[in-house]
């Protein structure tokens, strides 16, 4: 069963909206700036072999504001609360872009709570020589062109004439992103020197044509995380798990399937 059911998790600071589906070892998926509240093809494919749990971050999608959370440290504690609330002791953690940054921070702060780690075009590092493009300043057309390699696929992801509710929902998601990442811009300057703390098996995946987060970020993650594996996928844009879901679900599932959570604990 690879469809999702919708759930809410009550925490002290508010309600978390999440989608979950599939059977197998638990896989916590942390979404990118876009994609909150959406059961993607990528999730459906992963759910063939894992129990995929995809919560919306604070202020995103169907989750409450959690207005007091305004920094990455708050998000790390938030996800520890989410894991406790869901009884996830040590799941696989897969994060894309902004969610990849959260996943890396979680694995730094609580190494024993992350069974294995997959970072997909992850943000989070501050590399001044390889600046992340300013998505906040991009008009929608330019943003789409920045996120996707194949613009035909990109076009299918967005309504041609968005209605007011869609525009407001997008604005809310973007505001939540800005809350955590306006300055320092999409990064934690201290993250890089803390990456050595990660003990989970780690796979870092980057798309070769990432116009938002330069490939150098993924390489740096792979260099700094002990034993990390690195894969660069040709002809693909930043939103790779949306653009080419089969390929990235397969790469992710193959890596996670190599060793069970029980064996790697």
């Amino acid at each position: 069963m690879t469809n999702a059911t919708e759930q809410y998790l009550e925490l002290a600071g508010g309600r978390v909206h999440l989608l979950r589906g599939g059977e197998g070892e638990p896989l916590l998926f942390l979404h990118a700036a876009g994609g909150a509240g959406t059961w993607l093809e990528f999730h459906r494919l992963l759910a063939r072999g894992f129990e995929v749990i995809a919560p919306d971050h604070p202020g995103f999608g169907g989750s409450d504001e959690f207005a007091e959370a305004d920094g990455m440290d708050d998000l790390v504690f938030h996800y520890l609360d989410v894991m406790d609330g869901l009884g996830l002791d040590r799941p696989h953690v897969v994060g894309a872009s902004f969610g990849g940054w959260i996943a890396a921070e979680l694995a730094v702060a609580a190494p024993r709570r992350v069974g294995s780690l997959v970072l997909l075009s992850a943000a989070g590092l501050r590399l001044p020589d390889h600046p992340v493009a300013d998505l906040f300043l991009m008009p929608p057309g330019q943003l789409v062109a920045t996120l996707y390699h194949d613009l035909a696929i990109a076009a299918s992801q967005f309504p041609a004439e968005p209605d007011l509710d869609f525009v407001l929902a997008q604005y809310r998601d973007l505001a939540a992103l800005a809350r955590f990442s306006w300055a320092p811009f999409l990064s934690n300057p201290k993250l890089e020197r803390r990456l050595h703390r990660i003990t989970a098996r780690t796979l870092v995946v980057v798309p070769s044509d990432d116009r938002l987060v330069p490939v150098a970020h993924g390489r740096r993650y792979a260099e700094r995380i002990p034993g990390a594996r690195f894969a660069e996928i040709a002809n693909c844009g930043h939103a790779m798990h949306v653009e080419r879901p089969e390929e990235f679900a397969e790469i992710t599932a193959a890596f996670l399937g190599e060793r069970s959570l029980a064996a790697s604990s």
């Binding site: 300043l137 604005y171 306006w182």
Partner: peptide, 22 residues
């Protein structure tokens, strides 16, 4: 100026933005 420059994320509340857009 572009809409992104006028209303960067979170600069307006959703209700104010709704008011402006309508």
């Amino acid at each position: 100026q572009s809409p992104q420059m006028v209303t960067p994320p979170g600069y307006m509340s959703l209700s104010s933005l709704r008011g402006v857009l309508t």
